[in-house]
Design a protein around this nucleic acid. Structure first.
Length: 520
RNA sequence: GGCCCCAUCGUCUAGUUAGGUCUAGGACAUCGGAUUUUCAUUCCGGUAACAGGGGUUCAAAUCCCCUUGGGGUCACCA
């Protein structure tokens, strides 16, 4: 049987990081087997603007390079791929269930059902459907229908049976049908409910493996029953653990962002993100963008390889050694058998570590392109095409070296893009290392003349000059270098000092030295 | 509360299916040290875990039971 997996998002306007991990596992399983990966849109109760709601989801897939073989935009032999357009299929399946006696019309009002539920709870009884509507004769049903009485359609759960599945990650799981209420499969307006539509579509689309988060485990018996009643081939199941919030076992959720900000394990990620997003004009506190959403990582300048690597290692491992995996490697090595059973907390530290690794592997040209677009978006350069700008930025990127973990980190070297006036100064360190020392100021003044007359303003000669100067004046490197850096870049630390000076060029260095010294 | 799932270093995990080679391995984080003009990198090294209790067995992280803890789900949502 060919492997066909699906990911069926509801169009919510953003792509959840945990959902992305589920999608990745589906994609990996299909690709590993040379199968088919399908995207289906579960929009059975959608009123909102589809473009706005679905766009970010497809965008996340495209960004990460998870292509789908069937679904929106690409179509396929089992379309349409929007549940809102598949009503005919659901209606037909409903009729079949009704006519074979696997489902029945229930005229009980929601209030009545609710009351029974509460009564059962009060009496510590298991609640199961009353099934009074089942006593109705065919004529009585027709009469009620003719009278316009509202009813829902419920699946008739077979009493006395047990549903057993052999889950790829959880093994044997079973449920007692005597404990299950008859689930509603169609609303009073005839529209299908999730569990029902899913079953109809999974069968119609010939899904071989349903790989989804553990939170769906409790839906499974209902779906198995539905498949049976419909005479479908039952797909194989794999309930993977959901992605938890850092350091917890709780499902990571968009609604808990405020709490995550206080989470020490999340700190580093938020700091990184806030620094970048504020430069890009996003209001960090507004949470329009948060680490729960895939788009966040793209905006901050993460690489698909970094995100994918972090996600694949959440709940899955290849062996006791392998940590770094490219998309091709994970595709080749992935298996459901090695998915772990317990929930895995997203680990921001490890995510950043994977990201740093993949950034270090990125070819210089790609690094340049990425930084260019970030600098442009922040208004630090005016064109990404100008040859002069490109070669200058390339030099800065090269200088940044491994300080660049995400593209947004390029903003930390803003001293190369800001004018002398705009340059922000680390006042505390400037006071400590420059302003408070007359000797240092004297030395810097003297150094200025030497820099002025240096033949070649290049890293090598600058290095020699600075070292000789320190020796000549009988001072320590620590007395001069940090002070010089502060004057020229405004920062207490940063990239290689000599190369920084070279890149800034004699003019800017001298001018900034002047400005800083005159401010003392 | 019912049903279901889960339980190894701070975190992600290997080891559990086929009990012994596990005085429990790796990675991230952390702490030392080396390199370095700062920071970062890199390289060495350290700290750190089988939730608890009963069994079964010559032998249990591994099998069984109980307890505890955590989580998911209980809609005319998906």
């Amino acid at each position: 049987m060919p492997v066909r997996t699906r990911f069926a998002p509801s169009p919510t306007g953003y792509m959840h990081i945990g959902g992305m991990r589920t999608a990745l596992f589906n994609w990996l399983w299909a690709r590993h087997h040379g199968g088919t990966f399908i995207l289906r849109i579960d929009d059975t109760d959608q009123q909102r603007n589809m473009d706005e709601a679905l766009g970010p989801i497809l965008q996340a897939f495209r960004w990460l390079g998870l292509n789908w073989d069937e679904g929106p935009e690409v179509g396929g032999p089992h379309g349409p791929y929007f549940q809102s357009q598949r009503r005919g299929l659901y209606d037909a399946a409903l009729q079949k269930l009704l006519s074979t006696g696997h489902a029945y019309r229930d005229f009980e009002t929601p209030a009545e059902t609710q009351a029974q539920r509460e009564a059962a709870e009060r009496e510590k009884r298991v609640y199961v459907s009353s099934r009074v509507s089942l006593q109705l004769t065919a004529d009585e049903v027709q009469a009620k229908l003719a009278a316009g009485e509202a009813c829902v359609i419920r699946l008739l759960v077979p009493r006395g049976e047990t549903v057993v599945i052999n889950d790829h990650v959880r093994g044997t799981v079973e449920w007692d049908c005597n404990l299950m209420p008859d689930p509603v499969i169609a609303r009073s307006d005839g529209s299908p409910l999730y569990n029902f539509a899913t079953v109809v579509d999974d069968a119609a689309m010939e899904i071989s493996h349903v790989i989804r988060a553990e939170e769906h485990l409790s839906n499974t018996p209902i779906q198995v029953l539905l498949h049976r009643a419909l005479g479908n081939v039952i797909p194989e199941w794999a309930h993977i653990p959901y992605v938890a919030a850092p350091g917890s076992k709780e499902k990571i959720s968009k609604r808990k962002i405020a709490a995550y900000r206080k989470n020490p394990q999340f700190q580093k990620l938020f700091e990184l993100g806030d620094a970048v997003l504020s430069r890009l004009g996003f209001d960090a506190a507004a949470d329009a963008l948060s680490p729960v959403m895939v788009a966040y990582y793209q905006q901050v300048g993460f690489l698909p390889a970094g995100i994918l690597n972090a996600l694949v290692r959440l709940g899955w491992s290849y062996d006791d050694q392998t940590e770094v995996l490219s998309r091709e490697e994970m595709q080749q090595k992935f298996s459901l058998e090695r998915v772990i059973r317990s929930p895995a907390g997203l680990d921001p530290d490890k995510l950043i570590s994977f990201q740093s690794h993949w950034m270090s592997q990125l070819p210089a040209d790609d690094k340049l392109e990425g930084c260019l677009s970030f600098l442009l978006a922040a208004g630090l350069i005016s064109s990404a095409d100008d040859p002069g700008t490109r070669s200058y930025v390339a030099a800065v990127v090269d200088l940044a070296a491994d300080r660049l973990r995400v593209f947004g980190d390029i903003f930390q070297l803003d001293e190369f893009f800001l004018s002398d006036e705009q340059l922000s100064v680390d006042v505390k360190n400037f006071d400590k290392r420059v302003r408070s020392s007359a000797t240092t100021q004297e030395n810097l003044l003297l150094l200025k003349d030497r820099l002025q007359s240096l033949a070649d303003f290049l890293a090598g000669p600058l290095h020699d000059l600075l070292q000789a100067f320190v020796a000549e004046r009988g001072i320590r490197v620590g007395d001069l270098f940090p002070a010089l850096r502060l004057c020229v870049t405004g920062k207490a630390q940063g990239a290689d000092l000599f190369r920084s000076l070279e890149l800034l060029g004699r003019e800017r260095v001298l001018r900034r030295l002047d400005r800083s010294l005159s401010g003392c």
